[in-house]
Design a protein around this nucleic acid. Sequence first.
DNA 1: TGAAATGTTGGGGCG
DNA 2: ACGCCCCAACATTTC
Length: 483
Amino acid sequence: MKTGIVWFRQDLRLSDNPALRAACKECDLIVPLFVAEPGSQSVANLGAASKVWLHHSLRALKDSLEARGSTLLFLEGDAEELIAAVAQFFKADALYWNRCYDPAAIKRDKKIKKQLQQLNPKSFNALLNEEPWNTVKADGTAYKVFTPYWNARTKSLPGEKPLAAPSTIACSEQIRGLVNSRQKSRQKKLPLKHLDQLSLLPKLTWHEPMMSGWTAGENGAKRTLDAFLKKNASDYKQYRDIPSVDGTSRLSTHLHFGEISPRTVFYKLLNGRRDVSELNEGEHTFAKEVIWREFAYSLLFHFPHTITKPLNEKFANFPWESRYGKHLRAWQTGQTGVPIVDAGMRQLYATGWMHNRVRMIVGSYLVKNLLIPWQEGERWFRDTLLDADLASNVMGWQWVAGSGADAAPYFRVFNPVLQGEKFDAKAEYVKQWVPELRNVELRYIHKPWELTSAQKRSLNYPEPLVDLKQSRQRALMSYDRIK
DNA sequence: TGAAATGTTGGGGCG
DNA sequence: ACGCCCCAACATTTC
């Protein structure tokens, strides 16, 4: 009789879950476990929006485990101690998990692998299509430029066929009974929590409208992917840039929590076609975006210091603004006086999501027009985005700042007026999120500061924090100093 | 996965 | 008819 613990982390699904699959194959009894850790490793460090999603995703995972005769145990505290306690309680002799890639998690996992050797811990890859250490240049160093990385990666796409979800997951009355009872005596040895006790949901109900357009969990992820491939993938190249159009995949959060695997994404995207060259333009562009995600994980793995420090060392002495509290708060709350920027920041705060085109615009504005360090933007996004993902977020912000891999050249300063006029030509997006401007004439709506002062007074919309032309010049001069 | 400045071209108004 | 100028439209370069 062999009992195995499956420790769920960023792999909240049953399909294409190699750790779960291996456990089912090798064990007679499975103990599915989720640990809410304090400190930097996981739950305690998540932004409020991410926590809400995690709550719903864990609920969905528990439901689908229960539908297969199993359940999900929740514990709160140090993972190593609690896994040891679970192993002792159930007399488990095996431990399975799928890998995480942020440095704190790697450190934790290494330690657990060493300390819990008696459980013969086995780790697998579920979060990425390819391990970061497998795609390196001929000289053994990591790629820093996307295109050669993409060329190297496309040779092995679509990759392996995703694993099916196990039809049954061996469980025992002991496990199920434990989860459902509230007996104090048992709780002494194993302080099980209910999902609600993990306090992932905020006390106030702001999160309810936030989640209205989403279905967290594996089934929601599958439906989202299928709908995207059927409806929007072919037009992805043109529509993904229009923030008022639902033209993106909306898969980021599902991928972040591992509710769906990139293997599954590629397998369904390719749909029998041999490689990416057989995809149409939209599908091809989408494939690149999924590989951008893997590129981000490769960068995080090979250059973990870039979480806080610029990849390009020249930027170590960049002359950022030093007292920027007021401007930062105006940016965070969508009160910069630049309509497309404020629209994006308000969408983020209200919904936990922002359209990717707008992420670039607000990023460029923070870093270049306001000269605020990219780390501040990275932190705010990590706190407020449902899809907050250390790898993608850090790469994205360093890209915007010009300090990262394959970054936008420093002189590439977005003009939010032109970006607005180009990608939100009818101002539908701005009107949705900045209702003060709904009645402004179209030719002024992306630059309301050009209205007469009488017209402006009636709007109750802030004056711009900085002059766009001047702040652009200032940014170019600043970047000039580190050249 | 830019924008602005500068350069070039060509049609049309006009003397 | 012709040259000149203006300037939009497009192309190139520069930041």
